[in-house]
């Protein structure tokens, strides 16, 4: 089987941002390109090299990808102006899309974001109509009353019996105040720039209406805020977008995919979703196999590329 090729990408008007493009040996005609970025402060390879592994996996499906360091992260320098980091991230990702369009003829994109990357992906999708698919892994969370019950139940089950007995004695003797559960607490942190439930629902609906595919995936690392299958449906009961987004709660996968099994699971799910986005794009445009994505047209020197085995 022919191998993918990887190339250095200097992204942006002044080629300030550092990235790597993975070009499939057999590009899927009309398929969107995949955008990958930093999660937190981890450089472009992603936590546990996840971005590299995902990029090479989707290349087997004919998907071109770029993984970049956003301004001030990894090997990319800080932005030259003092703009808000969220706005800068959108500009950086748009520059990455411009790069793939200019060098490889790709005009539609899917974006995978983990944690802070999910927030960046969300903002990008709303700001730029070239985004055909948005995957938010551990993005915004909206707890329900059931979330709080599940959390307490899970914590209760995990306690050793001695600790349980001690807590009971404390409660009965009045040493520990009983906390009154407030429905929906901690869910709408507008002061942090986190969208409220109505805002999030409105954004999801806008993306769906526009034809952007959305995949919301949650790990098992956030017992406090997202802890059962179906939480999204409960949190947004009756919202129209629910029937049109892909949603997964993966309790056996942690936030940064520490185990190889977790990495494989998320990569398989992401590949499947991107394939469906690509299929939709093909159906919509009537793309034929005779067309090409223009991969390999950069003319970069061999010293800037390699073929991953």
């Amino acid at each position: 089987m022919a191998e993918a090729i990887e190339r250095i990408a200097r992204v942006g008007a002044d080629e300030r941002l550092v990235g790597v493009v993975t070009l499939p040996a057999k590009p899927r005609p009309g398929a969107p390109g995949l955008l990958l970025m930093n999660a937190g402060v981890v450089h472009r390879i992603g936590p546990h090299r996840f971005n590299v592994k995902l990029a090479r996996a989707v290349a087997e499906d004919g998907i071109t990808s770029i993984r970049i360091d956003l301004s001030g992260l990894g090997d990319s320098p800080n932005a030259t102006d003092a703009s808000h980091s969220g706005q800068q991230a959108i500009r950086d990702l748009q520059a990455a899309m411009d790069h793939l369009e200019r060098h490889h003829g790709i005009r539609r994109f899917v974006v995978f974001g983990l944690c802070s990357g999910a927030v960046n992906g969300y903002r990008l999708a709303l700001a730029d109509e070239r985004i055909a698919g948005l995957q938010m892994f551990d993005g915004y969370v909206y707890p329900t009353w059931k979330t709080h019950i599940v959390r307490r139940l899970v914590r209760f089950r995990a306690l050793p019996w001695s600790a349980l007995a001690r807590k009971l004695v404390q409660r009965l003797s009045g040493q520990r105040p009983v906390r009154v559960l407030e429905l929906g607490e901690g869910s709408d942190d507008t002061h942090l720039g986190i969208p409220t439930r109505p805002e999030f629902a409105q954004s999801m609906q806008a993306l769906i209406t526009r034809g952007t595919s959305v995949y919301l995936a949650y790990s098992g690392s956030f017992l406090e805020t997202h802890n059962y299958t179906g939480q999204l449906r409960d949190a947004f009961a009756g919202a129209m977008f629910l029937d049109h987004v892909r949603y997964d709660f993966m309790p056996d996968v942690d936030h940064t995919m520490t185990s190889l099994a977790a990495q494989r699971k998320v990569i398989a799910a992401t590949r499947d979703w991107i394939q469906s986005v690509a299929a939709e794009a093909s159906a919509r445009t009537g793309t034929t196999l005779a067309s090409t994505s223009g991969a390999g047209s950069t003319g970069r020197s061999i010293q800037e590329s390699f073929s991953p085995p």
């Binding site: 990887e6 790597v20 472009r44 390879i45 073929s307 991953p308 085995p309």
Partner: peptide, 8 residues
């Protein structure tokens, strides 16, 4: 490792 070719 990193951005070099090859797998873990």
């Amino acid at each position: 490792t990193g951005d070099s070719p090859g797998s873990d």
